[in-house]
Amino acid sequence: MAYAYLFKYIIIGDTGVGKSCLLLQFTDKRFQPVHDLTIGVEFGARMITIDGKQIKLQIWDTAGQESFRSITRSYYRGAAGALLVYDITRRDTFNHLTTWLEDARQHSNSNMVIMLIGNKSDLESRREVKKEEGEAFAREHGLIFMETSAKTASNVEEAFINTAKEIYEKIQEGVFDINNEANGIKIGPQHPTTNSTLSSSQGSHQAGGGCC
């Protein structure tokens, strides 16, 4: 249960692109075809392991509706990572990416790692946005890119974990000041030195996937 770091993530993107479904698939490993409209923000959390370290992801799943924008902007602050999601079967959701990106850059810290996600990759027959287009957009704006399917769980795990890896690397490089909580990173509880071996081994036993 004890973790080395806690990363705050936000999931953003147009309404209906599958943000809440991605979260549910990642935290609960299940898919719900019909989802209630998210109001404001909902939360999920899961423990992952990177480089032998337990990392807790605290995920803020924001509402995609335009009318909630002014509220959801408040939540960008203090996020270490963002998943910017579009729907590969709806071109307009891809066209809105620039606005989302501007918004995110403006309201969060400059070091935030952004992962661009083309969701619903299982619906190949209805595809409107080519994978190459997504890749190009990501290259142009310095984002990481992945196509996922919340329904089949394809790449979902990878999307969340690769973002965390990128953040973790930035920490190692010293880009992120981990003592500044505005960066969306918190250091886990410090083990008392005398018991460190005991409790850390215990910690890894307890932390088996699933929702924490």
Binding site: M1, A2, K186, P189, N195, L198, S199, Q202
Partner: peptide, 17 residues
């Protein structure tokens, strides 16, 4: 959050011992 973290540590320790 701090209180929670302390509790987590405590649990880990007592469980181990």
């Amino acid at each position: 959050r701090e209180a929670k973290e302390r509790e987590e540590l405590q649990t880990a320790e007592t469980d181990a011992s």
